[in-house]
Design a protein around this nucleic acid. Structure first.
Length: 167
DNA sequence: AGCCAGTCTCGGA
DNA sequence: TCCGAGACTGGCT
């Protein structure tokens, strides 16, 4: 099992995100908690240089997306915690360009399991790095919104900021 | 064994 | 057109 090394915060206009890093890169990103005490951030001084560098990339990418700009630079992503199926889904999500969408069925076809549409939804729901692994760009058939583990308001908001139309 | 962030079909409002 | 019920689905816990 992957070991998380460092937990760092990212303050944005939309709240305080939480990023967690393993020795391989960014492993988890959490939406801001509402009505809960913010987690303690590790002091930056004790953080290895590579992780500090990754964190700068994470923070910049996140803030760019939230500000309706392209992400430009990404940190290395550590998706090694997922199953083979989940990693296939997550890697396919990363190919969906900003402002574009795909359906759960299209993802299922793209990974060669055309009937696993519900399982694709499940894998989207366990995506450890939302926003940067753009699970919000997956809509149900006929451009209906579908679900979102981070809350449908976030899905609506992220899609709106990318100029995407949905029903 | 049971739960799902789906999708299709069909019938009624 | 739109919504709900029902059938069917595959991966995960």
């Amino acid at each position: 099992m992957r070991t998380l090394l460092v937990e760092l915060l990212i303050a944005t206009r939309d709240g305080q995100f939480v990023a967690r890093y393993s020795e391989k890169g960014l492993a988890e990103l959490d939406f801001p908690r509402v009505g809960r005490a913010s987690p303690r951030a590790v002091k930056l001084i004790g953080v290895p240089a590579p992780i500090r560098r990754w964190h700068r990339a994470t923070a910049a990418a996140l803030k760019n997306v939230l500000a309706r700009r392209p992400a430009k630079i990404f940190p290395p992503l550590d998706l090694s915690n997922g199953t083979t199926f989940q990693r296939k889904v997550w890697n396919t999500l990363r190919k969906i360009a900003r402002g574009q969408t795909k359906s759960y069925g299209e993802i299922a076809r793209a990974i060669g399991s055309p009937r696993a549409v519900r399982a694709v939804g499940g894998a989207c729901g366990t995506n450890p790095i939302p926003v940067l692994v753009p699970c919000h760009r997956v809509l149900a058939a006929n451009k209906k919104l579908g679900g979102f583990s981070g809350g449908l308001n976030w899905k609506r908001e992220l899609l709106s900021r990318e100029g995407v139309m949905f029903r």
